[in-house]
Write a protein that binds this DNA or RNA. Structure first.
Length: 263
DNA sequence: AGTCACCTGATT
DNA sequence: AATCAGGTGACT
């Protein structure tokens, strides 16, 4: 489920729940995507450590542990990271669990098993963060910097937005929604989008993510979408049929009337 | 720059 | 049975 807003909601909940808690024991139920690769090594690097901070960068969750290590989790498509009151309440799709010293458990759940959990040193965490583009809801993400990076890329607009090195945190849904709001065609090469459109797109990204973070963190289950998942339904703005087209092996939804100029 | 592989479950 | 899924890295 998670793009930036959903990951942000997970982080806020974790901050409420696990700051200051100590990891007493870890258990690995599915090893793929987990590092260190052996349960014994994972245990060695986490046991007895306290969770001192919860950070989000793009769609990555960083749990800072005492002693200078970082537990990093990427939920990918179907992951979730949450606390259960008791180890016996662990869901069937649990991949890794961390029992806390107060009896609760921190659960990394992921039925599709595409998610990633690893233990990093501080320098490794820093390297990983440095590879990501600016936080769209942070100060560094200015219209100017966005326009500059956009003009250096010939990528189709939607693929550009989903490339985490340009902006961190957009996925298939919010990329499509931002493009619709700014009326940019998803296939338009990024360096051929007019500057005024790029400025509008920058604003649309910030706006759609702000709204979604607020909605998702309030517990609203689904954020109202204008295009995503609405193939063949009428555009809310002009009434034209929303279309779906493949891009980079996945579905892009857009309004062919509002978002013109594919080439 | 485009396609595929990683996995499993829900839906048609 | 086939297709689709809100992600990403590793291939050609």
């Amino acid at each position: 489920m998670p793009e930036l807003p959903e990951v942000e909601a997970v982080c806020r909940e974790l901050r409420r729940q696990v700051l200051g808690a100590e990891i007493a024991r870890s258990r690995v139920f599915r090893r793929s995507g987990v590092r260190p690769a052996t349960p014994a090594l994972l245990a060695r690097r986490t046991r007895g450590r306290t969770i001192t901070a919860v950070d989000r960068r793009g769609k990555n969750i960083f749990l800072h542990l005492s002693g200078g290590t970082v537990l990093r989790v990427h939920l990918r498509m179907t992951g979730d990271l949450r606390v259960v009151g008791d180890a016996r309440l662990r869901p069937a799709a649990t991949r890794v669990s961390f029992e806390l010293n107060d009896g609760r458990s921190l659960i990394f759940e992921d039925p599709r098993a595409l998610g990633v959990l690893d233990v990093l040193s501080l320098p490794e965490a820093a390297t990983m963060m440095a590879a990501l583009g600016p936080e769209p809801l942070g100060e560094e993400f200015t219209a100017g910097s966005f326009v500059m990076s956009a003009q250096r890329s010939r990528k189709p607009a939607k693929l550009f937005l989903m490339d985490q090195s340009h902006v961190a945190g957009l996925g298939n849904i919010y990329a499509a929604e931002a493009l619709f709001r700014a009326r940019v065609h998803p296939a338009r090469p990024m360096n051929r989008v007019f500057r005024s459109k790029l400025v509008a797109l920058h604003a649309a990204i910030v706006e759609v993510l702000r709204e979604a973070v607020e909605a998702v963190c309030e517990g609203a289950d689904d954020f109202p979408r204008q295009v995503y998942g609405r193939e063949d339904q009428p555009c809310f703005r002009c009434g034209a049929r929303i279309r779906r087209m493949p891009q980079g092996g996945r579905s892009t939804y857009f309004c062919p009337h509002c978002q013109k100029g594919s080439a």
